[in-house]
Design a protein around this nucleic acid. Structure first.
Length: 229
DNA sequence: TCATTAAATTGTT
DNA sequence: AACAATTTAATGA
């Protein structure tokens, strides 16, 4: 089996497909690499592909008219995104930017739509993914209104290692404090202090350009009124 | 491969 | 927001 096929087979949705469906999916996928800082696509582009991250890190973001940058979410290894726009066959509603060197898989729209029309397993995957993404965005809105900066930093780190949305991200997340600040809507100095305190509390470790998650559960619940742990 | 320099990232004010 | 310190990446012998 080719290396490319092995990579596709490890995709989180691949195990849901029949052999026949998988063959078809694999034929519709190409590989691409994006250097750090490059765009996978821009807000307003026509949607031609569904994207998966093999290695690297990508952010969904947008820039307001006044030039203010907003980051909605980060997608790490094993994550797939853009199904909403592909399904509706509409223009992209945000930019997708590689913030580390990224190896990506691109499934063309015809193949995606074929799986959507024909594969029960693929639809099960889609519902799970859309549900989790919705939960992520609701939670993020809630954080921004209710939680202090340290808790926002902690929870965003936890999302980057979410087993449904970024299943192949291990314990080490390669992200700069600068990018984490954009993601958590916190100033960079506050990210720096938050990381120091969270490390002190034993929930993570951090080094130049990388964070090692020690307790993802506690990071994800950080700052909750009730402590369920 | 190693030393030097530039660039990126971090820590602090 | 600015600055200094540190780490990594790039360059060329």
């Amino acid at each position: 089996m080719s290396e490319r096929t092995e990579i596709i087979q490890s995709a989180i949705w691949a195990s849901e497909l029949t052999t026949d469906e998988f063959e078809r999916a694999a034929r519709g996928i190409t590989e691409r690499r994006f250097d750090k800082g490059n765009y996978l696509f821009h807000r307003g582009d026509k949607v031609d592909y569904w994207h998966g991250v093999v290695t690297g890190l990508v952010k969904m973001s947008s820039v307001s008219q006044s030039g203010k940058a907003i980051t909605f979410a980060g997608i790490g290894a094993g994550g797939w995104f853009g199904e909403g726009s592909v399904l509706k066959d509409e223009w992209r509603r945000y930019d997708l930017v590689a913030i580390r060197n990224t190896h990506a898989l691109l499934m063309n729209r015809a193949t995606f739509m074929w799986l959507y029309e024909n594969s029960v397993g693929f639809n099960r995957f889609l519902v799970r993914q859309l549900n989790e993404r919705l939960a992520q965005f609701i939670a993020t809105t809630e954080y921004e209104r209710l939680l202090d900066p340290k808790a926002r930093v902690a929870r965003q780190i936890s999302w980057l290692g979410n087993p449904l949305l970024c299943p192949h991200v291990g314990n080490v997340i390669e992200i700069t404090q600068d990018e984490l600040a954009l993601l958590a809507t916190v100033s960079r100095p506050l990210v720096n202090r938050s990381l120091q305190e969270l490390a002190q509390e034993g929930l993570l470790d951090f080094a130049h350009g990388a964070i090692t998650v020690i307790n993802r559960q506690k990071l994800g619940d950080y700052g909750a009124i009730e402590d369920f742990s």
